[in-house]
Design a protein around this nucleic acid. Structure first.
Lengths: 111, 111
DNA sequence: TTAGCTCATTGCAATATTACGATGAAACTA
DNA sequence: TAGTTTCATCGTAATATTGCAATGAGCTAA
């Protein structure tokens, strides 16, 4: 035990869970916010910005890249990261669909 | 090691991370969606719906309650759960603020 | 080539999460 | 009262996550 029973849930539910993990750690939120702010792509000066070890930042970047919310391009000896607009829109849509779903049914709450 | 270094991040970043955890597991997504669908509050027939053990569901419900996105009221020997509208709106706002932040700056992407 | 960057990966250690059986508290039912 | 239902909590096992030092790959500059 300790393994998430992925097979019990729908594809959409699993997708949302994966996407949410991008925001489920403050370091990753900080990275995303930094990318939003600088807009221009950056590299490991996140290490300076966040105060975590280089290996740790690299690991978080990889997770964000695996989720797809971020993309990196090689630029000489550096790697530029930025937000993946397509994936961003996808995830944004998935979340607003959920959030809107409640806003639409105000009134018949029970507790 | 293994401990999230909460002190390195801003309050908002930590709050977002906590809120995101509500959606970071498919079982919790399923619970939230079920609550959205049934609207009316429910109890442990989530056990039937989801196929996880009663103790596991109870644990997820507690996490959602700790995050505040859900609230429960005692109803005889049962407990009715439903979405907490105030907290829901809060979290919804936090996420849309992030998502909108990118939509507003289209064009100057780098990679 | 050699030295110095920048960053990913590997290999750990520590902690967190997920899941469940067992137990117990509280309320209902006969 | 005794039995049943509903749920939380405890204890435990398995796996996931977080974090870092060390290492290595790939590029740049001298």
């Amino acid at each position: 035990m300790g393994v998430t029973k992925t097979n019990l849930f729908s594809d959409v539910q699993n997708e949302i869970a994966v996407a949410a993990k991008a925001f489920a750690h403050p370091a990753r939120v900080a990275i995303i916010q930094y990318l939003l702010k600088t807009n221009a792509c950056i590299n490991g000066d996140l290490v300076q910005e966040l105060g975590l070890a280089q290996a740790t930042i690299s690991q978080h970047l990889r997770e964000l890249k695996d989720i797809g919310i971020i993309q990196g391009t090689i630029e000489g000896s550096r790697i530029s990261y930025c937000i993946n607009p397509v994936r961003w829109a996808e995830i944004s849509k998935q979340f607003s669909e959920i959030f809107d779903q409640f806003a639409a049914q105000q009134g018949d709450n029970c507790c």
